[in-house]
Design a binder for these strands. Structure first.
Lengths: 303, 303
DNA sequence: AAGTAACGGATATGGCGCAGTTCCATCGGT
DNA sequence: ACCGATGGAACTGCGCCATATCCGTTACTT
């Protein structure tokens, strides 16, 4: 028995007449009659009761019909499912991001854009710190991560810098330097520097420490902030200052101000990282859309 | 796409290897490779990722597999359903019977036997009087009926007498004639005769009246009993006597005795009636089993 | 009532395309 | 170098479809 037999059977059942069914199918009435006869021989019982004006289903035919009626739709569904999967329109991708990446204007835009383009792809999001994101990426617990890092020392991971921008100073509102639109880092040589632990975000840590050294002073390490939100809170508590990527200015708090840096400005990169092997089609779509989106608005360079 | 393609696809998916799959199917590896290639061309996306040691499903292949994996079982189920229906192993039959038919030893046995032989046939049972059963049979509300009638004047209905037996007298325990093992009907010439209305069971009615006339007296019509159970109750109330088929003796009541008839004994037939056109296979099976069962124990004639 | 036409299914025959066989080349892994 | 696996090419046989025709039933006309 083939799907052809089922299609022919259903056509006759629907028309109640071999001749009309044959016309609808696009073959002649004699081969249709023969194909149904072959099917009845294979099954071993008549499916149609031939009458002068056509044919009616027998009880066996009705029982057969009850099961096979769904075949055409199922066959169509199987083909559509394969096609959609082949285009990456279905599947799952697990994306991680750091807190500061989330404040980037483009990252939420990428999520929104991708959901709209591929609503049937299940995209799960997970916020964590850079080090943990990289670990989970390597352990195949995540498929892609946005993080503020411009390199990952692992051949199995691809990393694209998708945007970059200046860092800014975040300091207490009552700080003398807060009166100025721009702040020279050297003005802060006597203040404590608040950072997240180096092991959770080494790239950011090292860039901030280098910026201070380039401004001529060794930073006095202040309170260690467990996460980014804590950095802002500690600054509000007048425990010191910090440097953050400019998009962080969205995170407003009482007693906190952001100021541009007068002098050499450290740059914060935003990157997309993913494993180089075993990329799903959905992930491939996600990466290419993300890179395309950032090519369109990351040129020319912002500063 | 045909079921052949699906069978081939599932075989490769299962084996992870075209050569082994071909061996399992019973064709060569090259035609299998070509058939899968044809399927992939029709769908428009690769279903397998060819690797040195065989083949793995792509995401499209996995999505396709999720839907088509059920096809072989569904195809088998359709064929089996058709075959069962063709053998009358499924379907519905609606059987009616009179109260006194139910007291026949064989009728419940027929129901039990048929249910065991064809558990998937839905058999519904309905008790009613003869006239109503015949009406419902003609109106296609019932498929077969057991009734105490030896003829039905309707060419569209087939009737088989499946058993017959003597009637017995039912009279009050205190009746003078109750002292004897056998009772001559003429002993009851002065007693009232209790019967169900003629229009609900004309055959029984006429046979009883004839029996009285053959015994030399015109019966005095007593209380009209709306149904058979009422007949026994009225006799218990000493309102008169009646004649019933012998199996009715199972219905015992205080103050009631059954006595065989001394002299010419009227006979009660039990018949199976059904329409002669449009017989379902399940009904055909039911009728043939009922007739076979009664041929085995209705010979020799009981009396 | 008889003859004729129309409708519908089934049988017979021939041809073309497809599925399967056989042989062999290529590639990757051991 | 050898082995296992896939895929290409040539060939063959079978199955599906088209065409012609027959048979049975029903409806219509005379």
């Amino acid at each position: 028995m083939e799907l052809r037999h089922i299609r022919y059977f259903l056509a006759v059942a629907r028309e109640g007449n071999f001749t009309r069914a044959a016309a609808r199918i696009g073959i002649g009435q004699p081969p249709l009659s023969q194909q149904i006869r072959d099917l009845e021989t294979e099954i071993g019982t008549a499916l149609f009761h031939r009458v002068p004006h056509g044919a009616e289903l027998t009880e066996a035919g009705a029982a057969f019909h009850d099961v096979v009626a769904q075949f055409p739709d199922l066959a169509e569904r199987a083909i559509r499912a394969a096609r959609r999967a082949g285009r990456g329109e279905t599947g799952t991708i697990r994306v991680g991001f750091t807190a500061s990446a989330a404040f980037s204007p483009s990252v939420p835009g990428v999520f929104r854009d991708f959901r709209r383009a591929f609503p049937a792809v299940e995209m799960t999001l997970e916020e964590s710190n850079s080090a943990q994101l990289v670990t989970r990426l390597k352990e195949e617990q995540l498929d892609a991560v946005f993080l503020r890092q411009d390199a990952i020392a692992d051949d199995g991971i691809r990393l694209h810098v998708i945007s970059s921008g200046p860092m800014v100073v975040v300091l207490p509102a009552g700080h003398p330097a807060a009166k100025h639109d721009k702040v020279s880092l050297s003005q802060l040589r006597d203040d404590a520097l608040i950072l997240t632990p180096r092991d959770v975000g080494p790239t950011h840590y090292d860039k901030v420490v280098s910026a201070c050294r380039n401004a001529g002073f060794e930073p006095q390490m202040g309170q260690i902030a467990p996460q980014l939100g804590s950095v802002i809170n500690f600054v509000a508590a007048e425990l010191g200052f910090s440097l953050v990527p400019k998009p962080m200015t969205q995170l407003q708090a009482n007693g906190v101000v952001y100021r541009e840096i007068d002098g050499e400005v450290p740059i914060a990169e935003l990157s997309l990282a993913y494993r180089s092997n075993d990329i799903s089609i959905a992930l491939r779509n996600f990466v290419s859309r993300t890179l395309a989106a950032h090519r369109s608005f990351s040129e020319p360079d912002e500063d």
